[in-house]
């Protein structure tokens, strides 16, 4: 199912949770809403579900006005952050709940059909053997999968997941996210999940929606948002960045009054920030490079080493990845030259 969100805004008192959000989610897509806490991502998810109503804007499901329908009529599968499993029901009954409350009554499945459907779903989430247990007897990862099976039981038109892996420990988290991706490839239901973990979003989603302060900063594939961040926020939020404050004057970039030989990338006069990935800053001889600095510390294992450098002039410390073969000693004066970079106007 396709979802169209147009100009959606939502305020909680004086706080603007969402400010004019536009988003189109294609049928069968797996989309991540990524952002820091307070960015409005959960509010957006709850508005899609019908758990929250926007102050203005439109939400269409396959062209139909979803806002005219209550949460129960929208047929969304919602997986809550803390799972919201019914503690007084067994795993089986939790999954069967949506089938047992279906209205009108004549659309309700017969008991054997319900059993068959629930068992199939429990097999799908690999929990058939736990059908008679109660939620308090399960591990976090198991609860998560029960919650997912319960949401899928109503054959939702869209699956919504709020921080699906937030409450799990690192190892289970990694397993489950791979598993979720596989599951989505099998069942192909349009899915949206909220996360504050970039790794999770980049690994699992077809497209990532990066949000900050109630606005969408960028929409794109994981590669796009990582390789071509549209804004300074996205560059800083996703992946590691070296950030150097500079100024643009007379069509040239300046660092503490010294002209630096790099492109302004269309930034006009005023303060700006230079963003470089740690592995796209090369360490060269001191004279010819745009920046000069001193090696403070060299550490790390693996193919690259992490080098901490203090920039000359202001002592600003940056961390650069240098190839293992490069010889560097503490105290050495070196030059830094970005091989690939982005320049964004404005101060930090």
């Amino acid at each position: 199912m396709k979802i169209d969100i147009t100009n959606v805004s939502k305020r909680f008192g004086a706080f603007a949770a969402l400010a004019g959000v536009d988003l189109e989610i294609k049928s069968g897509e797996l989309v991540a809403l990524l952002g820091p806490s307070g960015s409005g991502k959960t509010t957006l998810l709850r508005i899609i579900a019908g758990l929250e109503w926007p102050d203005e804007g439109r939400v269409l499901f396959d062209g139909d006005d979803a806002l005219a329908r209550s949460v129960g009529e929208r047929h969304v599968g919602f997986v809550f952050q803390h799972y919201a499993l019914f503690r007084h029901m067994s795993v089986f009954e939790n999954v069967a709940f949506g089938l047992r409350v279906r209205r009108p009554r004549r659309q309700r499945l017969l008991e054997p059909e319900i059993r068959a459907r629930v068992n199939k779903l429990l097999e799908l989430v690999q929990l058939g053997w736990l059908a008679d247990r109660y939620p308090t007897q399960l591990s976090g990862g198991q609860r998560q999968r029960v919650a997912l099976a319960r949401a899928l039981a109503i054959e939702p038109r869209v699956l919504l997941l709020d921080e699906p892996f937030g409450a799990l420990d690192a190892k289970v988290r990694k397993e489950l996210r791979r598993w979720l991706r596989q599951l989505h490839d099998e069942i192909h239901v349009t899915s949206v999940f909220v996360t504050h973990d970039q790794e999770e979003a980049l690994e699992v989603a077809d497209r990532v929606v990066v949000m900050d302060k109630g606005r969408i900063e960028q929409i794109g594939t994981p590669t796009e948002v990582y390789e071509n961040p549209a804004t300074a926020f996205v560059h800083e939020f996703i992946g590691e960045s070296i950030v150097i404050p500079v100024t643009v004057d007379n069509g040239a970039v300046q660092f503490h009054g010294n002209r630096i030989d790099i492109d302004t990338q269309g930034v006009t006069c005023g303060p700006a920030r230079l963003f470089v990935r740690p592995y796209e800053m090369s360490i060269a001889s001191a004279e010819s490079a745009p920046f000069q600095g001193t090696v403070k510390r060299v550490h790390g294992i693996g193919p690259a080493r992490r080098v901490e450098l203090a920039l000359n002039v202001d002592g600003h410390v940056v961390e650069v990845d240098a190839p293992r073969v490069q010889d560097l000693t503490v105290g050495q004066a070196v030059g830094l030259s970005p091989t690939r970079y982005r320049l964004f106007a404005g101060e930090a």
């Binding site: 909680f12 008192g13 019908g50 758990l51 929250e52 109503w53 949460v71």
Partner: peptide, 8 residues
């Protein structure tokens, strides 16, 4: 919580 209740 101050969240407005949809379910009421």
């Amino acid at each position: 919580d101050s969240r407005r209740r949809i379910v009421a």
